[in-house]
Amino acid sequence: MIRIAAVGDVHLGADARGRMRPALENVGEHADVLLLAGDLTRHGTLDEAQVVAEEFADLPVPVVAVLGNHDHHDDKPVEVARLLSDSGLHVLEGDAVVFEVGGERIGVAGVKGFGGGFAGKCGSNFGEREMKAFVGHTIEIAETLRAVLASIEADVRVALTHYSPVPDTLRGEPPEIYPFLGSYLLGEAIDATGTDLAIHGHAHFGTEQGMTPGGVRVRNVAQPIIRSAYTVYHVEPMVRAAVAG
């Protein structure tokens, strides 16, 4: 059994410095790995990223993160990711990490994701340049996620995104904004690759639990949803074998 701690949308800045640290220092008692589902900062500045780095550095478990839309706002996502990586976090965008925990391997593939909407109610890669850029961005990310998930050799395979792969975990948000909260293309990539669990954030008014059309559990770990420093999932490696079999 692998213990996965996760939280998203912590939106740290100088005014929230150190708030999470007491709970984080005990994360090793609860979990084997900590996943951060994007929106680590408010505006994506390097000053805010430094606060994030100090909050999540030197923890007793590996910390794996993706960036969110807020982390892109200052147009320095590469620099933000580098600062966090230099502090020991594993920042993923189209790549994966694998850790061994008690003889079992957990692999995490991470992308920010993007919007577009869900089956039958989504944007198309057609028309104005701006519209094609919007939908094309999601298509590209989803293809990357699929390839990275498929490449992982591990006992437990996790997809980590900021945007949602399913509408289930958006319940509570206005349906009109679902196309800005996620895309079925992410869910399709997850379903195609024998993934065990999908973790995302972004939807502060959504709900925690959902499932892809292919039966993969999805969890929205936005901090306003989970109402704690992080939440914890215990994942048995045989879950995927049971679903696949």
Binding site: R3, H30, S228, A229, Y230
Partner: peptide
């Protein structure tokens, strides 16, 4: 103001 307390319990995914 969102809670930053340690979690109470965990969810078992089997």
């Amino acid at each position: 103001v969102v809670s930053v307390a340690e979690p109470e319990g965990s969810e078992e995914l089997r």
